[in-house]
């Protein structure tokens, strides 16, 4: 049921975003949506959610089972965007520096972020890919270990130091947002 509701709300928002500007009334609010489109949005969102529910209900250890965390997740995600964009800008200056100077020391390292849910792992892997000098290559599905291609390998001794050097505070953020 919760899967259905989450799908319904996200499909509704997507449809409404795509038909924005169909209003025909006056002012910004009047121009946004017509009543027909809102009706169509609700019908289509129910249909899509009913069909897709069976497919998306299979993931392991879902956040969707916990309503309290589910309501918290979107807000935490928006807060997460600020450190994310800062890291992304930094990443691009780093890549620019390496394209210009050609100074690289590549390698593939294994890290153990200890995340439990599939969604948390996906989020961490994607954030790692878009942030400084690192790219997720593979995942060990049993233990959740990530293999990361690192463009400028730094020498680290303990596992915690290495996680810190590879992805900064992102595992903590992924845990806060979805676990």
């Amino acid at each position: 049921m919760i899967t259905f509701l989450v799908l319904f709300v996200s499909m509704l928002l997507l449809y409404l975003l795509l038909v924005a500007g169909s209003g025909g009334g006056d002012g910004l609010l009047g121009q946004l949506f017509s009543y027909q489109e809102i009706g169509a949005a609700i019908v289509l969102a129910i249909l899509t959610a009913a069909i897709a529910r069976a497919m998306l209900g299979k993931a392991k250890n879902r956040v969707m089972n916990n309503p309290g965390k589910l309501l918290k997740a979107p807000f935490m995600f928006i807060v997460f965007l600020f450190p994310f964009f800062y890291a992304m800008a930094e990443a691009n200056l780093d890549v620019a520096y390496r394209v210009i100077t050609g100074r690289i020391r590549p390698g593939i390292v294994r890290i153990r972020p200890k995340l439990k849910t599939d969604l948390g792992r996906t989020m961490l892997a994607n954030s790692i890919t878009l942030t400084p000098g690192t790219l997720t290559v593979d995942i060990d599905e049993k233990s959740g270990d990530l293999f990361i291609h690192w463009i400028n390998v730094k020498d680290t001794k303990t596992d915690d130091e290495r996680i810190k050097a590879v992805c900064g505070s992102f595992p903590a953020w992924a845990r806060r947002v979805v676990e």
């Binding site: 691009n92 890549v95 390496r98 690289i104 590549p106 878009l130 790219l135 463009i151």
Partner: peptide, 14 residues
């Protein structure tokens, strides 16, 4: 860049 992985860095991020 010399190989696929480093090229991916430049290509996707930038």
């Amino acid at each position: 860049f010399p190989d696929v992985y480093t090229r991916l860095h430049a290509a996707t991020k930038a």
